[in-house]
């Protein structure tokens, strides 16, 4: 197990290192990094000062070392728009994004699994076909188009829910649902086929004959095998929610990190974009690592094969 954990950890670190290096290469390719960092409207003295501070007059390897050291120390520079550290600007927006991401994972669980189980238990009926068609369409649906249509229907036509930008629970429903379509549809399709796989097994009939309630039977016999896929889908849903936040938060005017990132990109506020993207990469890599480790934990065959 130790070897398995170590190899996964090394891969995650290598991925992050490579991502940070790519940004450095991009910085060098885009011309004068100091000018790029400070933006087109920077005063020449400021550019000169940064050039000295980052050692840009020295050789590329030295510059790379300085850059890596800064990143390792959490120094991502000052935001160009606000006279504050990029890290502070981004951290302010984290809670709103985290809340949205977590609620979307919860929604995927609460809506996806029952829909799939229901479809399996009513296999071949109109309900089954209806649920599965909706899941199929939902999987291909562009997230932000769905978000815009939901606003039109529920906020402006029916006037049931706010169109976004609010912190109360009602304001969370539309953006979280939009973000969770990936998880809902994947979980619905998965739980349907998982239930169908076991429903005709002999041990299911035995369990039924013993008089166990159906819910208990499903839980007991689907348990371990289902856990693997469940962990994967939920982890991927979390990644999708973090990455999808950029667009979804703009659709719903949600004051989170995603909206900040798209605005900062438009304003070419490089330090903020760099740190925000670093955080996105960090969280997605961490989620992937967690999935891998949980996998090894749940299923010994996986950690032994590695």
């Amino acid at each position: 197990m130790a070897r398995y954990v170590l190899s996964r950890l090394l891969r995650a670190l290598a991925t992050l290192w490579f991502a940070v290096t790519l940004v450095f290469i991009g910085l060098r390719l885009s011309g004068d990094p100091a000018a790029a960092l400070l933006g087109p409207e920077a005063r020449p003295e400021a550019v000169e000062a940064l050039r000295r501070a980052w050692g840009l007059d020295r050789s590329i390897p030295v510059q790379y070392a300085v850059y890596l050291t800064n990143v390792l120390q959490g120094d991502f520079g000052q935001s160009l728009r606000e006279q504050r550290a990029a890290t502070v600007v981004v951290h302010e927006r984290l809670p709103a994004t985290a809340r949205l991401a977590l609620v979307s994972v919860g929604m995927a669980l609460v809506l996806g699994i029952p829909a799939g189980v229901l479809a399996a238990l009513r296999r071949g009926t109109t309900l089954d076909r209806l649920l599965m068609s909706v899941a199929l369409i939902g999987q291909g649906l562009p997230n932000f188009v769905l978000g815009l249509f939901l606003i039109l229907l529920f906020a402006f036509h029916l006037r049931w829910l706010p169109s976004g930008g609010q912190h109360d629970l009602r304001g969370l429903i539309l953006p979280a649902f939009t973000l969770s379509t990936y998880g809902i549809t994947s979980l619905a399709r998965f739980s349907r086929s998982a239930v169908l796989d076991v429903i005709n097994q002999d041990y299911m009939r035995t369990a039924q004959a013993k008089g166990l309630p159906p819910s208990r039977i499903l839980l007991d016999h689907l348990g371990r095998n289902a856990a693997l896929t469940l962990v994967t889908v939920l982890g991927l849903q979390l990644s999708v929610a973090i990455a999808g936040a950029v667009v979804t938060e703009t659709v719903f005017a949600w004051p989170g990190m995603g909206r900040l990132l798209s605005q900062a990109t438009e304003q070419r506020d490089f330090p903020v974009v760099q740190y925000g993207v670093f955080l996105v990469a960090l969280s997605v890599v961490t989620v992937n690592l967690a999935i891998d480790l949980l996998y090894g934990f749940i299923d010994p065959r996986i950690r032994l094969a590695d």
């Binding site: 290598a14 991502a19 910085l27 993207v277 996105v280």
Partner: peptide, 17 residues
């Protein structure tokens, strides 16, 4: 690496630079 980092994130850095 590319599989493990959302491409939109990479795109935002490139567009800023």
């Amino acid at each position: 690496v590319q599989l493990s980092i959302p491409f939109l994130a990479i795109a935002l850095v490139a567009l800023t630079l």
